[in-house]
């Protein structure tokens, strides 16, 4: 993706560059196809363990990460394949990792939920709800100590809103003015429990406001809204003005994990959210603006289908981790 290789603006200056809407659309499509393939593989029993898909949440994944510059880092969560891809992970390496193969970026040790990709500025997906939040905040602390001007994004779901870690880190990043953007991907459910049933207070954004952190709730199904909101938060962070909090309202099209029957979702609600699918929405707008044509989008989708299918074929035939590797990399 173009935007992952862009240089950061000078500290104190707003980010100025033309948004690559088509590139963002392409990345959302890739994530959707990737997730559909993982779903098929998991249903067929090819994926060891649990797998949590982000289909439906592509606009938050892509819109946020597209607003970052090279050197900026993210910390993801257990529903993190989209973040990994948007941050530059190789499709084959990620898929191989999810299938626990030796050729996976983490040698098949991490799978879907513990994928770490520092070369692409990704502190990792995380099996502990809220676990990535302090990692990104701490990376910001380290950057400040060495005089860097990178920005750090903590992605978390609404399930992490009630973790103490989030509030501790919001407090610390606020008192130290750290360059952090807190991004809550609010898909309405923490596992199988509706967020409203377990969350007190008048609003989610108040959770940031109480620390004096500029906080905003936005439409997480619109990649452009997500991008422009994040862009402002990133510019603020890079200017040394401290953290921001963005709540992206979104929806996971699947269940908590592959195999979840989703009895807790209401049909009408599901229908309403499906109608807001971020990908067709973005496609229509691109066509209306003359940035692409329906035919070109069709070709793009065919290319992505092939790209993902090729990766799946390669991964299926890739070797499993060798027994001799069990005890490697416990210590340096």
């Amino acid at each position: 993706m173009k935007q992952t290789t862009r240089k950061a603006a000078a500290p104190g200056r707003p980010e100025k560059y033309p948004p690559d809407w088509l590139g963002m659309h392409r990345m959302m499509l890739l994530i959707r196809h990737f997730e559909e393939s993982v779903r098929s593989l998991a249903t067929a029993g090819a994926v060891p363990g649990l797998v949590h898909l982000c289909a439906g949440q592509e606009a938050t994944n892509v819109g946020v990460i597209a607003a970052l510059a090279k050197g900026d880092m993210i910390a993801s969560h257990h529903r993190g394949h989209g973040h990994c891809l948007a941050k530059g992970a190789n499709v084959f390496s990620l898929l191989a990792e999810i299938l626990g193969k030796d050729a996976g970026l983490c040698g098949g040790r991490s799978g879907s939920m513990h994928f770490i990709d520092l070369d692409n500025g990704n502190l990792g997906t995380n099996g502990i709800v809220g676990g990535g939040i302090p990692l990104a905040a701490g990376a910001a602390l380290a950057a400040r100590a060495r005089g860097g001007n990178e920005v750090f994004v903590c992605f978390f779901g609404d399930g992490a809103l009630n973790q103490g870690l989030l509030h501790e880190c919001m407090n610390m990043t606020a008192i130290w003015n750290l360059p952090v953007v807190f991004v809550c991907e609010n898909n309405g459910f923490g596992e199988f429990t509706a967020i409203d049933d377990v969350t007190a207070g008048p609003s989610i954004v108040a959770r940031g406001e109480v620390f004096g952190i500029p906080s905003k709730m936005i439409d997480g199904m619109d990649v452009r809204t997500v991008f422009t909101t994040t862009q402002r938060a990133v510019a603020r962070a890079r200017a040394g003005k401290g953290p921001s909090f963005i709540v992206c309202n979104t929806w996971r099209f699947g269940g908590h994990h592959v195999g979840d029957k989703q009895d807790y979702k209401m049909d009408a609600e599901t229908k309403r959210w499906l109608a807001r699918d971020p990908i067709p929405k973005s496609g229509k707008r691109l066509i209306a603006e003359g940035l692409t044509t329906a035919a070109k989008l069709k070709t793009l989708e065919a290319q992505i289908t092939t790209q993902v299918r090729d990766a799946v074929d390669r991964v299926r035939n890739a070797p499993e981790a060798a027994a001799t590797r069990l005890a490697e990399h416990v210590y340096g």
């Binding site: 302090p134 380290a142 870690l165 501790e168 610390m172 008192i175």
Partner: peptide
């Protein structure tokens, strides 16, 4: 380089881990 934290051990220690992953 010498950081006085609030009394927030989980968050502060988690941040130390993130700092270590990022080169400190």
């Amino acid at each position: 380089r010498i950081i006085d934290t609030p009394i927030s051990e989980p968050g502060a220690f988690g941040m130390a881990i993130g700092a270590a992953m990022a080169g400190a």
